[in-house]
Measured scan of single mutants.
Amino acid sequence: GMDVRRLKVNELREELQRRGLDTRGLKAELAERLQAALSGPSSG
Rank of each mutant, 00 (worst) to 15 (best):
A37R: 03
G40Q: 13
L34M: 02
A28M: 07
L38E: 03
D22P: 11
R24K: 11
L30K: 00
T23Q: 05
M2T: 07
M2R: 08
R6A: 09
R6Q: 09
R5Y: 13
T23N: 05
G40A: 14
R24V: 08
S42L: 11
E32D: 10
Q35K: 10
P41M: 14
R24N: 12
G44H: 12
S42A: 12
L16M: 02
A28F: 09
G1Q: 13
G25M: 02
E29S: 05
R6M: 10
G1P: 14
P41K: 11
R6K: 14
E15W: 10
R18P: 01
G44N: 12
E29I: 08
N10I: 08
E15V: 04
L7A: 03
A28E: 11
R33I: 02
M2P: 08
E15F: 07
L26N: 15
V9K: 08
E14S: 12
Q35W: 14
A37Y: 14
V4N: 03
E32L: 13
P41D: 12
E14P: 00
M2H: 07
R18A: 06
E14A: 15
N10H: 15
L16N: 00
E29N: 05
E32Y: 09
L34V: 02
R6S: 10
Q17L: 13
V4L: 08
K8C: 07
R18D: 03
R19M: 09
L16R: 00
P41H: 13
V9R: 06
D22W: 03
S39F: 11
S39N: 13
R5H: 12
P41R: 07
E32I: 11
A28N: 10
A36T: 08
S43M: 12
L26S: 15
G1M: 13
L12Q: 00
L30W: 02
L21T: 02
L38I: 10
A36L: 12
L34W: 02
G40W: 10
V4H: 04
A28R: 13
K8R: 11
L21E: 03
Q17V: 06
G44Q: 12
A28P: 07
G1L: 14
R24M: 09
L38V: 06
K27R: 12
G20Q: 04
L12K: 00
L7V: 02
E29M: 07
R33G: 00
E32M: 13
K8V: 04
R5P: 05
L21Q: 04
G20S: 04
L38M: 09
E32A: 15
A37K: 03
Q17Y: 14
L26G: 15
L26W: 06
A31R: 14
L7Q: 02
L34S: 00
L26K: 15
L21S: 02
E32K: 14
E29L: 06
R18H: 05
A31K: 07
L26Y: 09
S42W: 08
S42N: 13
G25T: 02
S39T: 12
E11H: 05
R24I: 07
N10Y: 11
R13Y: 05
G20E: 03
E14I: 13
L12S: 00
R33H: 01
P41L: 14
R6D: 06
G40S: 12
E29K: 06
L38D: 02
R19F: 05
L16A: 02
S42F: 08
M2Q: 07
R19I: 05
E11R: 09
L12T: 00
K8Q: 08
S39G: 11
V4T: 05
V4F: 08
L7W: 10
L16S: 01
K8Y: 05
G44P: 12
V4P: 08
E14D: 10
G44R: 10
E11S: 05
A28S: 11
L12G: 01
G20L: 03
G1I: 15
R5M: 10
D3N: 13
R13F: 05
D3Y: 09
Q17M: 13
V9E: 07
R19K: 04
E29Q: 10
G20I: 01
R13T: 04
A37E: 05
A37G: 03
Q17K: 15
A37I: 06
R33V: 02
R18M: 06
R5F: 11
K27Y: 13
L30V: 01
L38S: 03
S42Y: 08
E32N: 10
P41T: 14
R13N: 01
V9W: 10
E15A: 09
R33A: 03
A36Q: 11
G1K: 13
S39P: 05
Q35T: 09
L38R: 04
V9A: 07
G1V: 15
E15G: 02
E11Q: 14
